[in-house]
Nucleic acid binder design. Structure first.
Length: 253
DNA sequence: ATGGTGGTCCAACCA
């Protein structure tokens, strides 16, 4: 099984990139983030024509997540249960024997801001819900845009980012609390190039200079890790005309 | 030290 995650920063603008990538890479499940589109406007037909079914949790202007999958998903959950939130950031579904949770985690803006406090509260609620998901599903994958760089090696310039948003101790502790549920950062199960990132700021020629962060992750439970074959980041779409600022990340198992 | 880009939607917010 091959699963992948991609923050597309507007599905309207990136539709052709996603269609081309699906046809080239043929993942069983692709999770999208930052649709910036209402659920009812989602282009189901374009994906249906290339053999992908859609499960969508969208909203106007901001946020929004979706699954594109070769098989029908079941037991769909949208948003974190018991966490009141107008922002559409979460969708979960079961594909075959694998539970997949697709996340667009809050950015947090800056350490100490209101949005930062929201980010930490959101992660606490996420952890509590994922504890029950992990109990009921042996094969659990949790992927998406986490908006947290796990370690300094996931940051182009750790000194300048130290303690900043996406890298603060409290954010990394929130990520560790998810790993403590029995999940692993699947990218690090395999040898990877140095300076591997998944997001590059549009400004200051960030991609050309490889000034990026690895904030898009695929977390996997022990039963998935046991059969993991390979994991990676596909930088090719980031080099296209009018790209998303994120690259797709994937795990095969 | 400052400001740069891009998406949504047309002023201002978000990343």
């Amino acid at each position: 099984m091959k699963i992948a995650s991609w923050n597309v920063n507007s599905i309207r603008v990136r539709l052709d990139h996603v269609l081309e990538w699906l046809q080239a890479e043929q993942p069983d499940v692709l999770g999208l983030q930052e649709l910036k589109m209402p659920t009812d406007d989602f282009p189901h037909d374009a994906f249906g024509e290339i053999g992908y079914q859609c499960l969508v949790n969208g909203q106007k202007t901001y946020n929004g997540v979706a699954f594109l999958a070769r098989s029908e998903g079941s037991d769909v959950i949208t948003d974190i249960p018991a966490f009141e939130d107008p922002q559409r950031r979460v969708i979960a579904a079961t594909f075959g024997d694998t539970r997949v949770v697709n996340l667009y985690c809050p950015n947090g803006q800056s350490v100490g801001s209101e949005k930062y406090e929201y980010k930490l509260a959101w992660f606490a609620a996420l952890r509590d819900w994922l504890a029950t998901e992990a109990e009921t599903h042996k094969k659990l994958a949790v992927f998406g845009d986490f908006n947290i760089a796990p370690e300094d090696r996931d940051v182009h310039d750790p000194a300048s980012w130290e303690g900043k948003i996406l890298c603060s101790n409290a954010e990394r502790a929130a990520l560790q609390a998810l790993l403590d549920l029995g999940l692993q950062d699947s990218y690090r199960l395999f040898d990877q190039p140095d300076e591997s990132f998944s997001w590059w700021d549009y400004r200051m020629a960030g991609f050309r200079r490889n000034r990026g962060l690895r904030i898009d992750l695929v977390l996997a439970s022990a039963d998935i890790v046991a059969t993991a074959k390979a994991a990676g980041i596909d930088k090719e779409p980031r080099a296209l005309e009018r790209p998303s600022d994120h690259a797709p990340v994937w795990l095969a198992f």
